[in-house]
């Protein structure tokens, strides 16, 4: 079987499709949820889908570089989550809502 992963009979294709579906679920979440915090979470979900793919490819190639990238993505995700959440807390203090549909001051 082509593209078989190490130490398991699972094909790389399986993880590619799995990651793609998780990614799409993240996109879907951003589209249908209006709670800004949930949207941030969906972004994390997408990042994790990418991470999964990275690890799968790292395993497939037998090189650690992909996992190092997962590391850096986690760093960025953590930074993004802290700053994003503090912005949201600030916004909530001012607007008393986390509905991104109502954060439209720039529009007017």
């Amino acid at each position: 079987m082509e593209g078989t992963l190490l130490n398991s009979g699972v094909s790389l294709q399986f993880y590619i499709i799995l990651a793609t579906i998780i990614f799409c679920i993240g996109v879907l979440g951003v589209m249908i949820r209006r709670n800004a915090i949930i949207i941030l979470m969906c972004v994390e979900l997408m990042l994790n889908a990418v991470n999964l793919l990275m690890v799968a490819f790292s395993n497939y190639h037998g090189k650690g570089d992909g996992q190092i990238f997962v590391f850096f993505i986690m760093v960025v995700a953590a930074a993004e989550a802290t700053v994003g959440l503090s912005i949201l807390v600030l916004l909530y203090r001012n607007r008393k809502t986390v509905d991104i549909g109502l954060f439209n001051k720039l529009k007017d």
Partner: peptide, 14 residues
């Protein structure tokens, strides 16, 4: 078209 809503933006993006 510029609704100012992330949801619709990402919808168009998708």
């Amino acid at each position: 078209w510029q609704t100012g809503k992330v949801n619709s933006y990402i919808l168009w993006m998708v």
